[in-house]
Design a protein around this nucleic acid. Structure first.
Lengths: 132, 132
DNA sequence: CATAAGAGTTCCAGCCGCTGGAAGCTCAAG
DNA sequence: CTTGAGCTTCCAGCGGCTGGAACTCTTATG
């Protein structure tokens, strides 16, 4: 199948698929006319990458996961290690964002938000606030 | 004061400060020797940007905030609007990450993580899992 | 006073992960 | 036969820095 079909079936943009080929993440056969030609198994791999990316894995991690995916002899522990590491990262990001949310939330709450120039958000950002 | 001192006091890297000047976010006086020369007020502004960036505002948003910071006549409502919008974005990001966390958490939980090649994480990523 | 270290300057290039756009090819429908 | 969609390649740019080269300037020490 052509790249457009593979794109639709995998949820990736054609441009993205070409880019992945460019950086050597995935290869594709070529038809006689020079068009890329994708098998169902290729689409599986594309979707695998799409899901992994959307779960927060970097392209390099996808490369690793993909080789683990392809290598039927690898231990599941190898995969679990990568996924667990990622889980930690996600947790750290959530914690960080939650902190941000709290701080910014305070600022917004304390800002009267009217026509007066006095603004606790600006004060907070400039480090002139009384607490924290 | 020189850029290094301003950097230390604002929590930004000298490179970053030069970059901000490059893109016209902040300007700096020059001393006779050509070195950038920062006043205490400059450092205030640098720190303002540093905080804003660390709270998740983009450089462009920082530019807006900075002009609101500098303009003593603006209404606090203007600032509040930007901050509230940002708060929504942060909430969306948290929700997204929480979703990811849950999904990846399930996969990791179900993976026995031993030497066997059978792996529920790989299965999940490849879209072969039974549920979700 | 010579010299060496450290901090400043400029500019160019690269990171990640795409995405847009130009110019040219191929293919299917009308 | 023409039109338009879809494919190809390549080059450039996004955001937000960061690294490195090559240079000048300042400061401390022998």
């Amino acid at each position: 199948m052509n790249i457009g079909t593979a794109a639709r079936q995998s949820g990736l943009a054609p441009k993205t698929i070409r880019y992945y080929e460019d950086i050597g993440l995935l290869t594709a056969d070529r038809a006689a006319n020079g068009y890329r030609d994708y098998s169902n198994e290729d689409v599986h791999r594309l979707r695998f990458v799409q899901r992994s990316r959307s779960l927060g894995f970097s392209v390099e991690e996808c490369r690793q996961l993909l080789s683990l995916y392809t290598d039927r002899d690898r231990a599941s522990a190898d995969v679990k290690a990568i996924a667990t590491e990622k889980l930690g990262e996600i947790d750290r990001k959530i914690a960080e964002l939650t902190g941000l949310r709290e701080m910014l939330g305070h600022l917004v709450e304390n800002c009267h938000g009217d026509a007066r120039p006095d603004c606790s958000i600006i004060d907070g950002l400039s480090g002139r606030s009384r607490d924290h």
